[in-house]
């Protein structure tokens, strides 16, 4: 028995080695080996999960034999992430996506050492050589959700549960305020931050404070919002506008709409560019190129008045054809 298993292992090993060699000789289109570095986890129901699902969608389309995926989670600290990124590059991964704006500096440092590897990070816009930067125009969908909240709020108080005033959150909150302002100048948008991305207890507490202070519409960004969404669900009588991905499964009676990021389009673009040997690009996710989408929760859609939907649709068309630009803070 024991001898047989040894023989089996040797045979298996030999086959692997031989096929690996064979593969290399006849490789015309190189197999894509993609590594994904995530600040939180693939099941955070927000920022990281949406990107993970995007990558998996691309893999499904290309086939597992053409694309290999490795994921490292919980690397919110860029220094730890840097070690993982180098390891992936050393192991021959050819595309490494570090999913967060905090990884920009780390990539700037590592990328020159591995000219054949394509690196990507975002939210960001500085792309060059072998560094791609992807850039969701979070303010666009935020503006549309601002219209929903602004037209539907009864208390005229709208609460934002923000993480840290940076990257995606700034763009989202800025766009959201403009959307509310455009349809209901009397409504007050109250922006508060927890100072963390992942503290769901703090986010829940912040949502409770917003609701105690009279807010009937709530929104927010980052993975911590799941705590706030649950607090809103338990409180009842308020709506949540979600971002990153459709979070309505968490609270089907509370999450009224969602700005969804179609990361699969970004991942596909990076792969295409890599295969063509192109240099790093600034990849924008917008309504115009279809990488952003506004989804209504089918269960609550009937509660949205037609005039609100019309206003949203009109603004969306204006954003797409460029007649309406949602402003970003200057700097």
């Amino acid at each position: 028995m024991k001898r047989w298993s040894w023989i089996l292992i040797v045979v298996l090993l030999l086959t692997t080695v031989l096929t690996a060699c064979g593969g290399k000789q006849e490789a015309q289109t190189e197999k894509i080996r993609l590594a994904l570095i995530l600040p939180s986890t693939i099941d955070d129901m927000a920022w990281s999960q949406s990107m993970y699902e995007g990558v998996m969608a691309v893999q499904k389309e290309m086939g597992e034999d053409k694309m290999e995926v490795a994921v490292s989670e919980r690397l919110g600290n860029p220094v730890d992430a840097g070690a993982a990124i180098r390891q992936y590059a050393d192991q021959g991964y050819n595309i490494i996506i570090a999913h967060g704006s905090q990884y920009q500096n780390v990539l700037e440092e590592i990328a020159p050492d591995y000219p054949d590897v394509s690196f990507a990070y975002g939210t960001g816009y500085e792309a060059h050589d072998n560094i791609f930067a992807y850039d969701p125009q979070a303010q666009e969908g935020a503006y549309l959700q601002g219209i929903i909240a602004g037209m539907m709020t009864k208390s005229n108080i709208i609460g934002v549960v923000g993480p840290v005033e940076a990257g995606d959150a700034i763009k989202y909150n800025y766009g959201f305020q403009q959307g509310v302002e455009a349809v209901n100048p009397d409504a007050e948008v109250r922006i508060a931050y927890t100072g963390s991305f992942g503290d769901i207890a703090k986010a829940a507490e912040l949502a409770k404070a917003h609701m105690d202070a009279g807010a009937d519409f709530l929104t927010g960004t980052a993975q911590q919002v799941v705590g706030a969404i649950n607090a809103a669900k338990e409180h009842g009588g308020v709506y949540w506008l979600s971002n990153d991905m459709d979070q309505s499964s968490l609270a089907p009676e509370t999450v009224i709409s969602a700005q969804v990021y179609h990361w699969e389009k970004v991942v596909q673009q990076i792969i295409d560019a890599h295969q063509k040997g192109e240099t790093g690009k600034h990849i924008v996710l917008s309504f115009a190129n279809g990488a952003l989408e506004l989804k209504y929760n089918p269960q609550l859609e009937s509660q949205i008045p037609q005039e609100v939907k019309d206003a949203v649709e009109q603004a969306k068309q204006q954003i797409i054809d460029g007649t309406l630009t949602v402003k970003l803070p200057e700097n």
Partner: peptide, 16 residues
């Protein structure tokens, strides 16, 4: 308390 008396859910690094 964090998962059963406060947020009623669990997420990575909930203790923060």
């Amino acid at each position: 308390f964090l998962t059963l008396g406060h947020t009623n859910m669990y997420a990575d690094n909930i203790t923060a």
